[in-house]
């Protein structure tokens, strides 16, 4: 498992690996919002948590189809499926690598970009906390979607359509945590639900994704 983790991280940071793709998209998106919405700081502060969450979600989506497609194309996925590593572990590692290369940079960048949107102070912490809790679920759901569409040419469109509805619970509760954090309100309930969604996703989807991969490799 470590070998796969190291290989995929190495591939992600080498030329053409796509590391930073999601992050730069997030940066561009958030930087453009004030130009589109106008310079009213009060309005920006009000929409900031939602914008940052939607931005993070879309940035995550951008690199999902690479999770399995590249390994499928060069035959590695067949070989991994016949290797001693269980396919469930392969899926989990792939989702972990996606999170490390996308979710973690987004989580770290979000509070900085919050400044651009005039996010009120304690909100930065809660935004980071909600992203740290929610992005693992985004990566895991994305890995499941990528497994579903792995054999398809140009499966990216179908992947987005499949994955976006599954992202909705995470988005609702994640953005709610960030919004309540920024407004200084009580946020235990959405925080717990967000954590619950993430844990359930991480517990169940590796098995589902491995099962659909087995069907898709036939």
């Amino acid at each position: 498992m470590n070998a796969l983790l190291i290989r995929d991280l190495r591939l992600a940071v080498r030329a053409g690996g796509g590391f930073g793709l999601g992050l730069s998209f997030f940066l561009i998106l958030v930087a453009l919002i004030p130009f589109g919405v106008g310079p009213e700081t009060e309005l920006l502060a009000r929409i900031a948590p939602g914008i940052l969450w939607v931005g993070a979600l879309l940035s995550c989506l951008l690199s999902l189809d690479r999770i399995f497609a590249l390994d499928y194309e060069d035959g590695s996925l067949d070989l991994l499926a016949t290797a001693p590593l269980p396919l469930e572990a392969v899926v989990a590692v792939k989702a972990l690598v996606h999170w490390l290369t996308t979710g973690v940079p987004l989580t770290l960048a979000a509070p900085v970009l919050g400044v651009l949107l005039n996010l009120p102070w304690p909100g930065h912490l809660w935004l980071m906390a909600s992203l740290a809790l929610g992005t693992p679920a985004l990566s895991m759901i994305g890995a499941f979607g990528a497994a579903l569409t792995v054999g398809l040419k140009r499966g990216g469109l179908l992947l987005s359509l499949l994955v976006l509805p599954l992202y909705v619970p995470t988005l609702i509760f994640g953005a709610e945590v960030a919004r309540r954090g920024a407004a200084g309100m009580a946020l235990e309930t959405p925080l717990l639900v967000l954590a619950g969604v993430s844990l359930a996703t991480l517990a169940l989807l590796p098995f589902a994704a491995a099962a659909v991969l087995r069907v898709n490799l036939r």
């Binding site: 290989r7 591939l11 060069d74 590695s76 067949d78």
Partner: peptide
């Protein structure tokens, strides 16, 4: 079983 298919499973960036 060790399987060797048409595709070699080689990562070109490594």
């Amino acid at each position: 079983v060790a399987y060797a298919s048409h595709a070699d499973g080689i990562k070109t960036q490594l």
